[in-house]
């Protein structure tokens, strides 16, 4: 099958979703790990940022790759959403869901919320056009990401937005994690129920670990 054939095949499209979704998940984990350096205080996260900034080629390649993956994921996500909606034009008067979940039925919406969150997040911390005027240097002449995050996480609108963003991400992963294994054909009948449960746990774990950062800041433990 040609690339074009593959990309127009409905299983092919799903495989694209699964592979890109897998990379996005990978990013979510790596970013979580990176963010966790904040618990080490300014020394941790500022150091981490400086290290990254000292490898611009690597960072840019990585960014480029992730942006591409993200765009592909979003594009095919929309495509599939529209095609699938089109395949079921009439709705039932009553429809009982037997296995489908809130998460599985709202992938496009949770995905969009995550998208919106990301825009905000980038404007907030990367481009710093919201509330943060400029990134100061800390006493060791490193970019003071630590203070920026502490400041960012004490503003109520931001906190609310982060909460909803993370919630949407949780639901997205809730379905997406196990779904990607099914799509890639590695799920056997035996593994299936176990993986569905693990997927839920995993999504919850991502949500909790990300939320812990603002929570700890609000609680005043990090300041």
């Amino acid at each position: 099958m040609s690339i074009k054939g593959f990309l127009s095949n409905l299983v092919g499209k799903k495989i694209v979703m699964a592979v890109t979704g897998m990379f996005l998940l990978f990013f979510v984990l790596v970013h979580l790990l990176g963010n966790s350096s904040i618990y080490l205080g300014p020394d941790g996260i500022n150091n981490y940022t400086q290290k990254l900034q000292s490898m611009p080629l690597f960072v840019w390649l990585f960014r480029f790759f992730m942006i591409t993956v993200f765009i592909i994921h979003v594009y095919f996500g929309f495509l599939l959403y529209l095609e699938n909606k089109n395949a079921k034009p009439d709705k039932y008067a009553i429809k009982k869901s037997l296995r489908a979940t809130f998460a599985s039925k709202n992938m496009i919406w949770t995905g969009l919320v995550v998208f919106g969150f990301l825009l905000y997040h980038l404007l907030h911390f990367t481009f710093r056009v919201i509330s943060i005027e400029r990134l100061n240097l800390d006493f060791m002449q490193r970019p003071d990401v630590y203070s920026m995050v502490i400041q960012g996480m004490t503003e109520v609108p931001s906190i609310v937005l982060y909460f909803f963003g993370l919630l949407a991400l949780m639901f997205h992963i809730f379905h997406g994690f196990q779904s990607l294994f099914q799509t890639l054909g590695v799920l056997s009948e035996k593994m299936h129920p176990g993986l569905i449960n693990f997927s839920k746990l995993f999504a919850f774990f991502v949500f909790l670990s990300y939320s812990l950062i603002p929570a700890v800041i609000i609680a005043g433990i990090l300041r």
Binding site: K14, E83, A87, R99, S104, K105, S179, T183
Partner: peptide, 10 residues
């Protein structure tokens, strides 16, 4: 004109 599978398991 069938849709793709989103793994709803319905």
């Amino acid at each position: 004109g069938f849709g793709a599978c989103s793994n709803h398991y319905e």
